[in-house]
Design a protein around this nucleic acid. Structure first.
Lengths: 184, 184
DNA sequence: AATCTAATTTGATGAGTATCGAATTAGATT
DNA sequence: AATCTAATTCGATACTCATCAAATTAGATT
């Protein structure tokens, strides 16, 4: 689906093809005439017209010896309207892995056993790692600080920092003053 | 001027750049994040973003370590509206030689001395040659048939055919029944 | 000031494609 | 039917450009 849009832009990403569109906007022309006007060989113009026809922008009508091409202005307008519609923008993104960044960061910072080499200093990377670590806790279950530290120690010896950051970024909550922790 | 339009289409004639536009339509991203999402190296993403920035579609804002890129939706809409405006279509054509086809045909059919090798059989080529031949006559001056033939003989021995076609295509007029010829 | 990090730039490489000439095809004219 | 002619297809070539790795730059953190 996004392929269609790429093909459309590729078809128009050439100076000579744009000139052809401009010329056909004035009047229909045969391949031979276009070749003379653009100072190109007929085979080259044929190649360009095929690309424009592929996206439905031009069509040919046989007239005696000649193949006269004309611009489909309707298609031109309708295509250009929807180019950046919500559907097309969304379609271009369907096959990107939304978690790719987190995965890359986690892979960079993890050992084979799942523990962390270091705790990232950069905010975005720290967030990615914390989103990963917090999954070790069940949702809505209460944990004592001792239990939290025990779980976090699987990831890094500096359990205090991990615990503090998890709360700081809102990934875990703490009850009142010195109570239990939980993940929402 | 047409260069600008070509640059615009070229900038969007790439699947990964379209994905970048789609992603930035959702939220701003850093180069590093985009690289992870698209499974590309940061240097490649930088290259793509430079092309998108060149046409004013994205811009960067520095945020701590990161260069966060955002989509300029206003530019996106306004650009896509005017893409095939009358101005752009006309601009794409400014530097094409409108007489190139006639010139090519005339060159193909003329000898060095200006005379015609043959009279073209194809309509379009015949028209081009006739437009060339008729320039030997002054506008609004009356010529006898004998004088017409004398002038046409510089181009081809079959003056009768040339004379008939000139009148047939309306390039020369004839007075009443057997009177003089003239070019309007 | 020294060090770290993300981004950019540069150079090299491979894939894609615009262009042409030659061969072929499709169709009209004679 | 035979012959012309424009268009298309095919193969080759040159150029453009997407991509990466390495080097450099710009900027923030310590």
């Amino acid at each position: 689906m996004s392929d269609e849009v790429v093909t459309f832009f590729k078809a128009l990403a050439d100076a000579n093809r744009l000139k052809i569109v401009g010329l056909l906007a004035q009047q229909p022309y045969s391949v031979e005439e276009l070749a003379a006007l653009l100072d190109l060989k007929p085979s080259t113009v044929s190649h360009h017209l095929a690309k424009l026809a592929q996206i439905g922008l031009v069509s040919a009508r046989t007239e005696s010896y000649y193949n006269v091409y004309q611009l489909d202005e309707k298609a031109l307008q309708s295509k250009s309207q929807n180019l950046f519609s919500q559907e097309n923008l969304a379609a271009s993104v369907v096959d990107v892995n939304a978690n790719a960044y987190d995965q890359k960061v986690i892979a960079d910072y993890s050992r084979k056993d799942g523990s962390l080499k270091t705790i990232p200093a950069q905010r975005k990377k720290l967030e990615a790692v914390l989103r990963y670590v917090v999954q070790a806790f069940e949702i809505n279950k209460k944990y004592s600080e001792k239990k939290v530290n025990e779980i976090l120690s699987r990831y890094h010896e500096d359990t205090a920092s991990l615990r503090r950051e998890l709360v700081g970024y809102g990934l875990m909550k703490r009850e009142g003053g010195g109570g239990d922790y939980w993940r929402e």
